[in-house]
Design a protein around this nucleic acid. Structure first.
Lengths: 341, 341
DNA sequence: TGTTAGCACTCTAATTGGTTGAGTGCTAAC
DNA sequence: GTTAGCACTCAACCAATTAGAGTGCTAACA
């Protein structure tokens, strides 16, 4: 048995109706809804076939049909574009160029959640191909040295170092020059043990300062270790009965609170090189444990060369995919443009 | 009518029983529970009086009684200490001296939530009495200057400034000296417009750099504007039916997600000078909108001189106050000691 | 051969009414 | 002042019923 054109049309009608109403769809509804002019009995026969093909399911014997994951997948891949969406008024998306990145991203998440009425996440950009740009040691207190490390992409890392006894300005200058001449322009891979040893030797009694700085450099470069993720709209889970029984809600909320659990999503997204921009995970396809009953739609944005982050929406499988994709694209474009100018 | 000793005893019995069971308490239960040797009928009379006095309420006509906010308040103020709590095995609280403050505090919140089975929050310390310690301008790129500002308590603020054309090392040095000689050691209040104008004049064509630095200084000092708050255990709200209907849960979760809404709590807590250490808010007493059905217990910790933060537990009014207070005290002590050594 | 009308059947959701049990308030007696 | 006793209230539970939506199947139709 094949998915011929008529079955395809019927399936499409079922899914669209279900997305609108959230209720299982019966044969009579489809018989009226489509312009196929078929009786409900015929539709019933076709529905039985579609069920056999795995595109739809029956929650119980005497209920209508709902789409299966396979059905949703077909919808997202093939049917979605075809529907000419009425241009709908959308709350203006506006991102002020805030100087604080964290505020900006938090704001972005909030906006996504408000506009879509689903839960939203935004990951802070990951910095790749990081090279050391600049190191600066300064005396702050008698026995405290501040090391400032700037890497490509203008990520800044501060590290306070305590020294046993005061350093003269001259010594400090020497150390500054030592560190900068040896390390500037290098990537993590290029900094090797031999180099470090050589520097330590040159630093003499101040080798522990060199060690501290190297340590801070390492941390600044592998900043992705503690990937920041901002979320918003957790309460929207409650809008969809299929997600809001205690057990499920509890799991979803925990996942959303312990944001590290969402990092899979970010990894997955960034890893995908030939990423067209939008990725859809339906039900079991999700890389995040505890969200098997949801659909997740993500997009990757790029703030600056190599600074990529992920934005995403989590909602019920019967989410309004068009709206979600539209919102994500809009935000992605705004973020892409933000620092490009 | 007065709260005589017998009424007091009965009230105590009612509240304790309710805390244990979470069910409205009937007269017969109390008649058996206490060693007053009174019949249920007598208890009923006393209960009617206690209700009139406002210490207990009846959810509906033919139900037992539950404590009112006023009842809980009396319990927390007067009755709590009297109960000798069996020393209960508690999961060991252990805070590694993590070098990253945010990890440490997040971890602390998680621990509180796990131990108590309520929702927990931890605020990052607020830095008070901030004076400027040190300013450093460095060239990073041809047209980019990095300003590093260190204030008392070693809070560090970075600000990237873009300049129209390159600056000579000499000019940079001059600006550094200008800024440091004028500003070091001053508090926010001491930096006035006249001073800024004078510096701008001396800076000549580089007055915009001075302006940028002043701006960053202002931000560094009023860092409390974006007070960091870490939360954990949101899902614990679901453990208590009185908090987990959709409406209430939705509100609680939103408050917990938009952490700024919890800042009232922190303000309130830090403002209270003669704070004995633990503060209890019952029901309507809470400073946080949307938590009127909860009780909140908070404590203040002090990492270093003037670096105060708040830790807190949010749960149902019928929470195990002793356990909560005990946990907060334990954590508070650990945090207090952490950087003191 | 594909389509349709019709019918028996299934299952959920909502409604109803009855029962149970916990708990109360009140009164009269101790 | 205390208590026994009784009538009353109310939520919670259960079973039975009903209504309605929807199905699958069969037989007739074009």
């Amino acid at each position: 048995m094949q998915l011929d054109e008529r079955k395809y049309t019927i399936l499409q009608a079922i899914i669209r109706t279900y997305l609108e109403t959230g209720e299982p769809v019966g044969s009579r509804t489809i018989s009226k809804y489509t312009d196929l002019n078929l009786s409900s009995a015929t539709i019933r026969n076709e529905m039985a076939d579609l069920e056999e093909l795995g595109y739809i399911l029956q929650p119980h014997t005497s209920a209508g049909r709902i789409p299966s994951d396979k059905g949703y997948r077909l919808y997202v891949d093939k049917m979605m574009e075809e529907k000419e969406r009425e241009v709908e008024e959308m709350k203006e998306i506006l991102l002020e160029k805030e100087d604080k990145m964290d505020h900006l991203l938090k704001q972005a998440a909030r906006m996504l959640a408000t506009n879509t009425e689903y839960a939203a996440m935004v990951s802070a950009p990951q910095y790749h191909r990081n090279k050391l740009k600049f190191i600066q040691l300064s005396r702050v207190d008698f026995n405290q040295i501040l090391a400032v490390i700037v890497v490509e992409g203008n990520v800044i890392k501060n590290r306070m170092l305590t020294v046993a006894e005061g350093l003269s300005d001259e010594t400090l200058l020497k150390l500054n020059i030592l560190l900068n001449t040896h390390l500037n322009g290098l990537s993590m891979e290029q900094i090797n043990l031999g180099m470090i040893a050589a520097m330590k030797q040159q630093a003499g009694i101040h080798s522990d300062i060199v060690a501290g700085v190297i340590d801070a450099v390492a941390e600044a470069i592998k900043a992705d270790e503690d990937l920041e993720i901002y979320t918003s709209g957790t309460k929207n889970f409650f809008k969809y009965p299929e997600l809001s029984d205690h057990e499920r809600a509890s799991e979803l909320i925990t996942t959303f609170e312990e944001k590290q659990l969402l990092s899979e999503l970010v990894q997955d997204n960034l890893a995908d090189e030939n990423n067209t921009g939008i990725q859809v995970y339906i039900g079991n396809e999700t890389p995040v444990q505890g969200m098997r009953d949801c659909s997740i739609v993500t997009a990757t944005y790029e703030l600056d060369e190599g600074m990529k982050g992920t934005i995403g929406i989590i909602g019920p499988k019967r989410m309004d995919y068009e709206k979600v994709v539209k919102n994500l694209k809009l935000l992605k474009n705004q973020l892409d443009d933000l620092y490009r100018k």
